[in-house]
């Protein structure tokens, strides 16, 4: 069957709010241009976005869920990275 060759693409959309492109989903298409056109039809039927990125799914390198604990452990112990770690007298007001 011909479709075995139909590559998978990940679709990212930037909404009107000006935030970063955000993952919307995926789709199959023969090449990047057609993936963009399909993404327009499948993921932006109601003015969801102002910009679309399509990326071949095979091009994404992902962290291994099994490594989650070791990978993110260093962040857990660094409370001084958060504003609430520091004490500011109430009289100073909001900071």
């Amino acid at each position: 069957m011909t479709e075995k060759n139909m590559p998978l693409w990940e679709v990212f959309i930037r909404s009107r709010t000006g935030l970063s492109h955000r993952h919307a989903g995926s789709l199959h298409a023969p090449d990047a241009e057609m993936a963009l056109q399909n993404a327009r039809d499948v993921y932006t039927r109601r003015g969801e976005g102002l910009s679309i990125w399509v990326v071949p799914s095979s091009a994404i390198t992902a962290s291994d869920p099994a490594d989650k604990d070791t990978l993110f452990e260093p962040t857990a112990s660094k409370v001084y990275r958060h504003p609430t770690f520091y004490e500011v007298p109430e009289e100073v007001g909001h900071m």
Partner: peptide
């Protein structure tokens, strides 16, 4: 619809 899928793949190959 098979011809559409085949044509799209052929077009992608030609463009590449």
């Amino acid at each position: 619809g098979a011809w559409v899928r085949e044509a799209a793949l052929a077009f992608a190959a030609k463009r590449a």
